[in-house]
Design a binder for these strands. Structure first.
Lengths: 234, 234
DNA sequence: AAGTGGTCTAGACCACCGT
DNA sequence: CGGTGGTCTAGACCACTTC
C-alpha cells in the first residue's frame, strides 16, 4: 500500500481510539513529517484522506482539528465498510432470502451496461440489527466479474470478499436516495404497516476501470435507518 | 483564486458544455500541462477536484474518462449550488413563509454550539418546482455571523449572499437523511396526504474555521425529490 | 516498448492566525 | 512576528494499459 494511505489509516485508527480527544487538535504537519519521516506532500496527501473521510478539518495558520463525533449510529454513505462498521454498537445479522444466477433482462442490462442475457448473481438479503429487521437489500452482480458467490460470503461481507479475495479494486459509485410508500411484501418482512414510508437507496458500483459490476436497491426501515453524509467544500 | 481551482472550473465548464462527449476521454496530463503551462502537481490537483465533484474517473495506464451523466434531475448532496443549479431544466420559485430574529433556546444552542439566548435568524421557505410545491426548508442562522438577511436575499440565494457579499468561506457540513410520516401542517403545504412519506435532510454547516453558523431541516415531497450522491473510493 | 496515471521527494514562497 | 497551513515548481521512478 502507498505510504500516504498507510499514514492515513494509522492516523484514522488513532483518531478512533480517541488519541486526540483532549486537545481536539492533531499534530502539525511538521511534526507528522518528522514522525513518519516522509516528505510534506506525502503527509498532506494522508491528511487529505482524513479530511475527505470526514474526520478532521484544517484551518490555515492555525492547525488541524477533529470534527465533532456523531454520537448516534448512522449509515455512512461515503464508505464501503458496510453496516457492521457503521453501527459498531449494534448486533448485525444477515439472512439470505435468495441467491441464484439469472440472465440479465433489458432493464438490468441497461443498468449494468452489459448485454441482455449476461449471467448475473441475484441476491436478496435481510439485514437484522439488534434482533429487529432493518433493511432489505437486493443486489445484482455481473458473474463474469464476480465469478463465484455463496451463502457464506453473502452472509458475512461480499465486499470484503471482492476486495481481498478477488483482488478487484472498486472505483466509484452512484447512489440515488429517495423515499416512498413501502410495498406490501417488504412491509411484512420489515414489520411495518403497508403504506408506511420506506427509505430507499439505489446503488450503481463501478471498478476503477469504469466497469459497472453491481447494481443494488436497499429498502430501509423508516424509523431505524438514518444516513449521515459529511461533506467538505474546497 | 488558486490556479488549480481555475483550471478545475474551466474544465468543469468544458465537460458540462459537452466538449469531451464524443470520445468520453479527457486530454492526457501531459497535454493539460502544456496547454495550461503549469506543473504536473497543479494539473493533478485540478483533476482531483473534477474526480471529487463526480465528473470523471482516472484509470492508471489508460487515461481520464467522463462518468456517465445522470439524465434525470436530482438534488446533489455534495454541492452548495442550490436547487436552481441542481434542477437546471426546471422553474424554481421560493416563497418566504417566515423570516425573523429569535433567541436560541437550549435545543438550538446545543445544535449551533452557541449560548442560549444568541440571536438567530429564523427562516421558513417553500420551494416550488415547475409550479408545484417541492420542499419546505426551515433554517436558523447565527446573527453574529450573518448579521443581516431580508426577504430578497432569502428569495434568491442565501448562500450566494453569504459567500460573495459577506465573504464568508464555508468549510464543511453534516447531512443526516431519513424519512418519516409527514406532519399535518407540512402535508397541507406540500399538497400530500397526512401520513404520506416525507424525505428529510437535516443539515449542520460550518465555516472553514469550524464555527457552526447554520442548522436547517428540509422536508421534501416524497414523489418529487431524489438525491444523488457520487462517491469515489481511493 | 510506448503511453499514461500513481507515488514520492526537496525546496520555495504565500496567506492566515494568534501572541 | 513566529507558527501553521495553502499553493506551486521540477524532477525521479513506479505500475498499469495498450499495442
Amino acid at each position: 500500500m502507498a505510504k500516504y494511505k498507510e499514514i492515513a489509516d494509522y492516523l484514522e485508527r488513532e483518531i478512533l481510539d480517541g488519541k486526540f480527544d483532549k486537545t481536539k487538535k492533531l499534530p502539525t504537519e511538521d511534526e507528522l513529517i518528522k514522525h513518519f519521516e516522509v516528505s510534506r506532500n506525502t503527509i498532506r496527501k494522508a491528511i487529505n484522506q482524513l479530511v475527505n473521510r470526514g474526520y478532521i478539518y484544517q484551518v490555515q495558520g492555525s492547525g488541524m482539528f477533529l470534527r465533532e463525533r456523531s454520537v448516534t449510529d448512522y449509515i455512512n454513505l461515503g464508505s464501503l465498510r458496510g453496516l457492521t462498521k457503521d453501527l459498531p454498537s449494534k448486533i448485525i445479522e444477515t439472512k439470505i432470502l435468495a441467491l441464484h444466477v439469472l440472465k440479465a433482462d433489458e432493464v438490468k442490462a441497461k443498468q449494468l451496461r452489459c448485454e441482455v442475457g449476461t449471467d448475473l448473481y441475484y441476491i436478496k438479503r435481510l439485514r437484522i440489527v439488534d434482533k429487529e429487521p432493518f433493511s432489505i437489500e437486493v443486489s445484482y452482480f455481473r458473474k463474469d466479474i464476480v465469478p463465484y458467490l455463496n451463502e457464506d460470503i453473502a452472509t458475512s461481507s461480499i465486499y470484503t470478499y471482492i476486495i481481498e479475495d478477488l483482488k478487484l479494486s472498486i472505483g466509484f459509485a452512484d447512489k440515488v436516495i429517495n423515499c416512498d410508500k413501502i410495498d406490501e411484501e417488504s412491509a411484512g418482512v420489515l414489520h411495518v404497516n403497508p403504506l408506511d414510508p420506506a427509505l430507499i437507496i439505489e446503488n450503481t458500483v463501478s471498478l476503477t476501470n469504469g466497469t459497472i459490476f453491481e447494481v443494488s436497491k436497499s429498502i430501509f426501515h423508516y424509523q431505524k435507518a438514518k444516513i449521515l453524509n459529511r461533506i467538505n467544500f474546497k
